[in-house]
Simulated scan of single mutants.
Amino acid sequence: MSTPFVALLRGINVGGKNLIGMADLADCFRDAGYQDVRTYSQSGNVLFAADRAVGPQLEDAVERMLGARFEVPILVVARSRDELAATIAAAPPDHGSDRLRSEVFFLKHPLTSAEVCAELPELREGVDSIAPGPGALYFSRVAAQARKTRITRLMAMPVFRQMTVRSWRTSTRLLELLDAG
Rank of each mutant, 00 (worst) to 15 (best):
R101V: 11
R101T: 10
S102L: 07
S102G: 12
S102M: 14
V104H: 10
V104D: 07
V104L: 08
F105Q: 08
F105S: 04
F106V: 00
L107E: 01
K108Q: 08
K108I: 03
K108M: 05
K108V: 02
H109G: 05
P110S: 04
L111I: 08
L111D: 02
T112N: 01
T112F: 01
T112S: 01
S113H: 02
S113M: 02
A114E: 06
A114D: 07
E115W: 00
E115M: 06
E115V: 01
V116T: 04
V116W: 01
C117M: 09
C117L: 03
C117F: 06
A118P: 05
A118G: 01
A118S: 07
L120E: 11
L120I: 14
L120W: 05
P121A: 13
E122K: 10
E122Y: 03
E122P: 12
E122V: 10
E125P: 04
G126K: 08
V127D: 03
V127E: 05
V127S: 04
D128T: 11
D128F: 10
A131I: 13
A131K: 09
P132Q: 13
G133N: 03
G133R: 02
G133I: 04
G133M: 03
G133Q: 03
G133P: 02
G133K: 00
P134T: 00
G135C: 05
A136F: 13
A136W: 09
Y138W: 12
Y138F: 11
Y138G: 01
F139K: 04
F139R: 11
F139I: 07
S140E: 06
V142R: 12
A143H: 02
A143N: 03
A143M: 02
A144M: 00
A146D: 12
A146M: 05
R147V: 04
R147I: 05
K148F: 02
K148C: 06
K148S: 08
T149K: 06
T149F: 14
T149W: 14
T149Q: 13
T149I: 13
R150C: 14
R150N: 15
I151P: 05
I151Q: 00
T152R: 11
R153A: 14
R153N: 09
R153M: 05
A156R: 15
A156G: 14
A156P: 07
A156F: 12
A156T: 12
M157L: 09
M157V: 08
P158N: 14
P158E: 13
V159S: 03
V159A: 03
F160M: 11
F160S: 14
F160A: 11
F160I: 09
R161I: 03
Q162M: 07
Q162Y: 10
Q162D: 08
Q162L: 11
M163F: 08
M163I: 04
M163W: 09
M163T: 01
M163H: 04
T164L: 08
V165N: 06
V165G: 05
V165M: 07
V165H: 05
R166S: 15
R166Y: 05
R166C: 13
S167G: 15
S167A: 15
S167K: 15
S167D: 13
W168H: 11
R169G: 09
T170R: 10
S171C: 09
T172R: 15
R173H: 09
R173K: 15
L174H: 13
L174T: 14
L175N: 13
E176M: 07
E176S: 14
L177I: 00
L178I: 07
L178W: 10
L178A: 12
D179H: 11
G181A: 06
G181V: 09
G181Q: 12
